[in-house]
Design a binder for these strands. Structure first.
Length: 157
DNA sequence: GCCAACGTTGGC
DNA sequence: GCCAACGTTGGC
């Protein structure tokens, strides 16, 4: 059974347009450096899982599209790279601390589902990403929430 | 740019 | 293992 996730990215750093422009529209989701988010990613993500792509730290934070998980979790290579800003000397090949999955672009919404809009929606207002103080970059999404978004996108198109 | 919320660090 | 200090996140 597939799971659904919301994954945050600052578009100045990596946007859904960047993902769509990547080779095979696929990119490694690296740089997760929070244990709770890491655990979701490492322990629960499966190939085929659905992803809501969320743009954070911008004027209008929003879910801007969807993607899917296309690999199993594997150790984050940026953690081993001293030249990477995500380098972590405590992560080793033998005992990796941080993980990634590959994600492939599926859809960019014609109009993003803004945070303000999500708050007004009877189902989507329950999303974890709206909770005060929510800082995890990887968050679980319920099937009901996913379905609600699927329906909105059909209505949109 | 402000600041509340949260996670991490490190002295004790 | 407590907790104060500090750094980061991210909405506003």
């Amino acid at each position: 059974m597939p799971h659904y996730w919301l994954m945050k990215s600052e578009p100045d750093c990596f946007s859904i347009q960047d993902l769509e422009a990547a080779p095979c529209k696929t990119s490694m989701w690296d740089g997760v450096r929070n244990y709770q988010a890491r655990n979701f990613l490492r322990d629960q993500m499966q190939i085929g899982d659905g992803i809501l792509f969320y743009h954070s730290n911008v004027k209008e934070p929003a879910i801007v599209g969807t993607a899917r998980v296309t690999s199993r979790p594997y150790p984050d290579p940026t953690a081993f790279d001293p030249s990477s800003e995500h380098f972590d000397p405590k992560s080793s090949l033998r005992n990796p601390r941080w993980f990634v999955v590959n994600v492939q672009h599926v859809l960019t919404f014609p109009s993003p589902l803004t945070r303000d809009f999500l708050k007004t929606h009877p189902v989507l207002c329950t999303m974890d990403v709206l909770k005060k103080g929510s800082r995890l970059s990887v968050l679980p999404v319920t099937e009901a929430q996913w379905k609600a978004i699927e329906m909105l996108c059909c209505a949109d198109g």
